[in-house]
C-alpha cells in the first residue's frame, strides 16, 4: 500500500530546511512536506498534520538547537499535549553537533526514534524508504 507519508521539519535554519526538503522530495516524491521555522507554530498546528488514527506515517525531524526553544523543550510541550509514542509517528532529533548529553537524552526518550546528525543525507533517507515503503 502506498499511504502517504508525511514529513515534518521543525528547524529555525532556513537553508537546512531547504536542503532537507530537497532531499526528502527526491526520495519520497509523493510525501507530504511541512516545515516550520517556528517551533511554537509547529506545536500549534500539530494536529493538522498528524492524527493517531490515520494510517499514514509521519516523520518528524526536530532540530535540537533553536533560539526560541530547544528540541527537547518542544518534545516536552508535545508530551504535555498528550502526544505519545505512536506507531505512525517517528521522531528524529536533528543536530548539527553531536553531543553526549543529547545522545543520552535521545536514548532515554522512548518517543524518539533516533538521532540524526546534520546534514540529512541520501543514505539515511534510502534506509528510511526501505523500512517504510511496504
Amino acid at each position: 500500500m502506498n499511504e502517504q507519508l508525511t514529513f515534518v521539519l521543525v528547524d529555525d535554519d532556513v537553508i537546512n530546511n531547504m536542503l532537507s526538503e530537497i532531499l526528502i522530495e527526491d526520495e519520497f516524491p509523493e510525501a507530504k512536506m511541512i516545515s516550520f521555522l517556528d517551533p511554537e507554530e509547529a506545536i500549534a498546528s500539530f494536529s493538522t498534520f498528524f492524527s493517531p488514527e490515520s494510517q499514514s506515517k509521519t516523520f518528524l525531524f526536530l532540530d535540537i538547537n533553536m533560539p526560541l526553544m530547544s528540541g527537547w523543550e518542544f518534545l516536552e510541550i508535545l508530551d504535555l499535549k498528550g502526544v505519545k509514542k505512536y506507531d505512525s509517528l517517528f521522531i528524529y532529533m536533528l543536530s548539527s553537533s553531536v553531543n553526549k548529553e543529547d545522545l543520552k537524552k535521545t536514548e532515554l526518550n522512548k518517543n524518539i526514534t533516533s538521532f540524526i546528525e546534520k546534514p540529512l543525507n541520501n543514505e539515511f533517507l534510502n534506509q528510511l524508504s526501505e523500512i517504510h515503503s511496504q
Partner: peptide
C-alpha cells in the same frame, strides 16, 4: 557547546548542499 553548534550548523548546511550538488 553553543559555538560548536552554531559553527557546525552552517558547515553542515554547506556539506549537505555541496554533496547534493555534486551527486
Amino acid at each position: 557547546n553553543i559555538v560548536s553548534h552554531n559553527l557546525r550548523a552552517p558547515v553542515a548546511n554547506i556539506i549537505g548542499l555541496n554533496n547534493y550538488m555534486l551527486t
